[in-house]
């Protein structure tokens, strides 16, 4: 029974591993930390798996566990303080990498996103993953209205990178 469950779980995680890799790429900045966080998320998913009921999609369920692990449970985060003001980050990132080509502008956006606080990062991530606002709100534990307001603020700022 356990072996069957184990096999089923690992297959599902293998098929959906991109979600976890994307979370890891946002929340860590080197290969070793990436693998470390991936492992922790895999452990947390496996521990919670007996409580996964088929009523939601496996992927939907994964977003929540993966983000909770990255934001709250994962201990080895970068030492630098992450409470940077968005405008300050943009200003600095722009000065460092100014190049008008589209590829560069996208890189600029990614750099800006990487330097966001843990919670803002989660919002942007869920947005990029095309999750709807009710799911975003539920994952983070805030109201849908507040999720929208916050996301709109981040979006406006991101746009200004491409249209200075």
């Amino acid at each position: 029974m356990t072996q069957e469950l184990e096999h089923q779980f690992v297959s599902q995680l293998e098929a959906n591993q991109n979600i976890v890799h994307k979370v890891c790429s946002l929340y860590t900045d080197n290969r070793e930390a990436h693998n470390d966080l991936f492992q922790e998320i895999a452990i947390q998913l496996w521990k919670a798996y007996p409580r996964f009921r088929g009523d939601s999609k496996f992927s939907t369920w994964m977003y929540r566990v993966a983000l909770n692990t990255a934001i709250t449970l994962y201990r080895k985060s970068k030492k630098q303080p992450r409470t940077q003001d968005f405008d300050a980050v943009l200003y600095r990132v722009k000065a460092e990498y100014y190049d008008p080509s589209q590829e560069q502008q996208l890189n600029l956006m990614y750099s800006a996103i990487r330097e966001l606080g843990d919670i803002d990062k989660a919002l942007v991530f869920l947005y990029l993953e095309d999750r709807n606002y009710s799911e975003i709100a539920e994952t983070l534990g805030i109201s849908e209205v507040n999720a929208r307001v916050k996301m709109n603020r981040i979006k406006t700022k991101l746009k200004t990178i491409l249209n200075p």
């Binding site: 184990e6 779980f9 690992v10 995680l13 293998e14 591993q17 991936f38 492992q39 922790e40 895999a42 452990i43 947390q44 998913l45 496996w46 521990k47 692990t69 709250t72 449970l73 994962y74 201990r75 080895k76």
Partner: peptide, 14 residues
């Protein structure tokens, strides 16, 4: 690789 991971010890905050 994934299978090996799930039996490792967690290092979570909890």
């Amino acid at each position: 690789q994934i299978h090996r991971m799930i039996w490792k010890k967690s290092s979570s905050l909890v």
